[in-house]
Design a protein around this nucleic acid. Structure first.
Lengths: 143, 143
DNA sequence: ATTAATTCCTACCTTTCCGCTAGGGTTATA
DNA sequence: TATAACCCTAGCGGAAAGGTAGGAATTAAT
């Protein structure tokens, strides 16, 4: 498994905020209820999004969160990179992994690099706006 | 991380056998030494390959393993599917996963299905023979 | 001033999987 | 008869996933 619940939940938050996009801020409580995620757990996920300036937040009464930019400005990849430890398909490509001593002679390294590239490119090719459209437009998309 | 050591070791076994391809059978011991993998651990991995009839085996003196077909006949995907529990990028796509109650309305399911497809297609597009060429031909491949 | 909300921190817990290690018995073949 | 594959079981240490729990500080609308 490549994508953890953290990443999936982060995407659901983004979609939720995109669908309820108004001038108002959306409270964590509301998102948690709609998405059926514990408030406490969601808090830790949303904090990452705020820190990365993906979301704007407002404290106090009437506070909450909103997207800083329109949904089409956020790729799925950009969100997942914030919440996932790593999206590398194998350990040796993870950030901070010790450079493998055998890398120069490795028969499989190019394979993993290629796989990594394919995954990145796909995740960068889809935006939050794309996710909104799918699933509402009559479910007639084909994968 | 998507690919475990089991899968990576399986590929290294396939490459090793492809590179030492003769009429003779190659012993587990030899593979283990060259690849620096414990014999016991390797045994469990190779057993999967034999069971799936990817490898031919011979017992007794002079025994060991060899590829049944030429290296270009095996895709990386076909090998990984044997050793990996699952190559699904998210839990809900794993075989045997309970069908998600929200699947029909899920905003992200198509995303994961698309990602899954991209991964599968890539892994099916590379063969063991491809892995052999890379890394020997002067390291001038570009990813 | 009060209330409602985010923010920030720490600590802990359970479960699952990974990557092995260890041991020993059985069977086939040169 | 030595040598190899075959087959099974058991366990284990570490890491990560997926949370839960609780509290304290800050901010803003009313």
């Amino acid at each position: 498994m490549l994508i953890s619940t953290k990443g999936r939940y982060a995407l659901r938050v983004m979609i939720d905020l995109a669908e309820h996009r108004t001038e108002d801020f959306i409270s964590l409580k509301g998102i948690a209820q709609r998405q059926e995620i514990s408030e406490k757990y969601l808090e830790s996920i949303i904090r990452m999004l705020v820190k990365a300036r993906v979301l704007e937040s407002l404290r106090g009464k009437g506070g909450g969160y909103k997207l800083r930019k329109p949904p089409e400005a956020y790729t799925v990849g950009s969100i997942l990179y914030l919440t996932e430890e790593s999206l590398a398909p194998v350990a040796c490509l993870e950030e901070g992994a010790d450079a493998c001593a055998k890398a120069a002679k490795c028969r499989t390294l190019p394979l993993w690099q290629g796989l990594d590239k394919v995954i990145r490119e796909y995740l960068e090719s889809v935006t939050i706006a794309d996710l909104m459209e799918r699933g509402t437009a009559g479910d007639d998309y084909v994968i």
